[in-house]
Amino acid sequence: MVKVIGRNLSMELPKYFQDFITLSLSVIIEALPFVMLGMFFSMAVRVWLPHDWLLQHLPKQPFLRRALISLLGVFMPVCECGNVPLARGLLAKGLTPAESLTFLLAAPILNPVTIITTQQAFSDDTTVLIARILGGFLIANLIGWIYSSTRQDAMLRPEFVASCKEKRDNSNRLVDALHFFKHETRTMMPALIIGAMVAGLIQVVVPRETILLLGNSPAWSVLVMILLAFVVSICSSVDAFFALAFRGTFTSGSLVSFLTFGPMIDIKMLSLMRTTYRRTVLVQVSFLVVLLTALLGLVVNYVF
């Protein structure tokens, strides 16, 4: 039991409060390096990348274009939370909101760090690795295609759109870089902290025993692991080893759903994405990802 000791004061913190602090801090500590890396990438993209360079080198055909965008994570192996500031930079350079969603959903799964850790954790079960890679690619591109027919300016928060239209003096790129980094820090850090605190609170409130009780059902196990992925908000670069601990209790399909859903949508990720996308878009995308990752898990359970 942790004790808080001051002058003439000794107080023991309740265990649930200790757990809340520990879990919240663990999410922040795990995500912070990747958020910072993503902000540096975003800063570089917005300040030093020539304005039309990215658009000129992407295919014109929409399906090929989104497919290539979904593979950008191979070259920029940033965790999901770091991809949000990076996606903001890419949006400012000309990607459409639908294309940025494709990148955000695919990049945390289709990057070398995530692929290697998944292969190491499930080295004797290639089904999990292949289903995660193909599932992540297909779901991201399907959602990107769905939103490509939506009015693009209606997907973004007005505050973000206004920040993209700011005119900066390109004669001093270092000053511009510091300006963007300061703006991203003030936007991302509160979102990260709030998301981590909500994730920590839910993990304290929801009994782990209730989750484990449903682990052997081919259908219920998928839904339970999707819920668990949403709550624990663990980084995609290490989530395979976390999922490995449930291998003897949960079905393979449920583990695939966990490993696919978590990098795309979790509490921390939604809090960060809220800085850029409108609430209605995030609710719709979350619902679609739940349906598609659940379908993926059921296919693995019943077909393989």
Rank of each mutant, 00 (worst) to 15 (best):
S217D: 15
D176R: 05
E184N: 05
M188E: 06
L214Y: 07
L213D: 08
I211P: 05
T210S: 14
F230A: 13
G200Y: 10
T187S: 15
H183M: 13
M189F: 12
A219T: 11
L213P: 04
L201K: 09
T185E: 02
V232W: 07
V198R: 01
H179W: 07
D176H: 04
A191T: 12
V204L: 10
H179K: 04
A196P: 04
L212I: 06
A199M: 10
E209L: 12
M188H: 09
L213A: 14
W220T: 14
A196S: 14
T210W: 12
V204E: 10
G215H: 06
L214C: 07
L192A: 12
V224K: 07
T185Y: 08
F181M: 03
E184G: 05
R208D: 02
L192G: 13
M225R: 08
V204W: 05
G215L: 07
W220E: 11
V231N: 02
N216C: 02
M189H: 00
H183Y: 09
L214D: 03
R208Q: 09
L228M: 14
K182A: 12
I193E: 00
V222H: 03
M197T: 11
A191N: 09
R208C: 01
Q203L: 05
N216V: 08
I194H: 03
P218R: 03
A229Q: 03
F181R: 02
A199R: 13
F230P: 14
E184Q: 07
A177N: 09
V206Q: 02
I193K: 00
L214N: 11
L228K: 06
W220Y: 06
G200C: 05
A177W: 07
V222E: 00
L201R: 09
L213R: 11
I211Q: 08
S221Q: 08
V231D: 00
V198P: 09
A199W: 00
V175W: 07
S217Q: 12
I202E: 00
T185D: 00
I202Q: 03
F230I: 15
A229K: 03
A219P: 02
V206K: 05
L212F: 07
A199I: 07
V198K: 01
H179N: 04
V175S: 13
W220A: 15
L212T: 06
H179I: 03
A219C: 06
F180M: 04
L223Q: 03
L227E: 04
V204H: 06
D176E: 08
L178R: 07
T210Q: 08
V232L: 10
M189C: 06
A191K: 03
A199K: 12
F180G: 02
H183D: 12
I193R: 00
G215F: 05
V224N: 05
A196T: 08
K182N: 11
F230K: 15
V206R: 09
M188C: 12
